[in-house]
Amino acid sequence: MLKDSKTGYGLISIIFHWACAPLILFVFGLGVYMRGLDYYSPWYHRGPEIHIELGLLIFFLMVLRLLWRLRSGSPEAIATIPKSNQLAANLVKLVIYIAVFTICITGYLITTAEGSGANFFGIFNIPTTLELSADNIDRAGKIHKYVAWGLIALVALHATAALFHHFIKRDKTLVRMLKPSDDSL
């Protein structure tokens, strides 16, 4: 039940999915909320700290998730789902991965742009790799913002498709990400 099988996801893949999904939504919401803060808001400094720390956590979880995915493979598609839908689902998942990594990398570049490292919950500091010019900080900020909004649109599409498969098509698409496969031992 830990590893993925041909028919479903194992517990490790399910944990990675459900650990990352709410974190990504929360960090996105916090990012949107922070845009409206003024200097005197109690969250003016704490909000960005949490945003950065959780963004780094998402990055680390996504690296582990990607390594796990590359090692364990993916379950076979449900036979009743047309090949075009399978291709679209795989494309959406790939773009979600690319978007999350793009957001994390641009967030890191923005955070460390002036030479300060990125703090990970006070446990350790991730050093600066390069300092950006003001124009490049702005570019990274725009990429970070617009890719984040695109990611949320893709996540909404992904969730809608899962619910469609569960309630309309009545197949096991959603159940496979909720319950470990019995033959994944």
Rank of each mutant, 00 (worst) to 15 (best):
H51T: 13
L11D: 06
G73C: 11
T129L: 13
L157R: 13
L11A: 15
P180F: 04
L174G: 05
G29Y: 06
F60W: 15
G122K: 03
G29P: 06
G10C: 04
K6E: 10
L87G: 05
A148R: 11
A19P: 03
I168P: 02
A99N: 15
N125V: 15
A156F: 15
C104F: 10
K145N: 11
S41T: 09
I50Y: 08
V63T: 01
G107I: 09
C104H: 14
R35G: 08
L174E: 01
L87T: 14
V92R: 03
A148D: 09
L25G: 10
A118L: 05
L37T: 03
R46I: 15
T102H: 00
N90W: 09
V175W: 05
L61W: 14
I137S: 00
D4Y: 00
L132W: 09
V92Q: 00
L154W: 07
Q86K: 12
P75D: 05
A99E: 11
T106V: 09
Y9S: 12
F101K: 05
L151Q: 08
G29M: 14
I78F: 05
T111F: 06
T160Q: 02
T160Y: 04
H158C: 14
L70F: 06
T111Q: 10
M34G: 01
G29F: 08
P180M: 04
A153N: 08
A118M: 05
C104E: 11
I137W: 01
C104D: 12
R176G: 14
H17G: 15
I126Y: 03
G115D: 10
L174Q: 07
G122M: 01
F60H: 10
D138I: 02
H144N: 11
I105R: 03
E76L: 11
S116Q: 10
W18F: 04
L132K: 02
I143T: 01
L70C: 07
D182P: 13
I78P: 06
G107T: 07
L37Y: 00
I126V: 15
M1N: 02
L54V: 12
I15W: 07
A99Y: 04
A159L: 12
N119K: 02
F164Y: 15
S5F: 04
V92A: 07
A153I: 07
V175H: 01
S72E: 14
K3F: 03
H17L: 15
I98P: 10
A113H: 07
G141A: 07
K179P: 10
L64M: 12
Y40S: 03
H166A: 09
G47W: 00
D171Q: 03
A118S: 06
L94G: 12
I78W: 06
H51F: 11
A140I: 07
A89S: 09
L94D: 10
L163Y: 02
S184T: 08
I123P: 05
V32D: 00
D171T: 14
L151M: 08
Q86E: 13
L66C: 09
S184M: 04
H17Y: 13
A140T: 02
L37P: 00
L66A: 13
D182K: 14
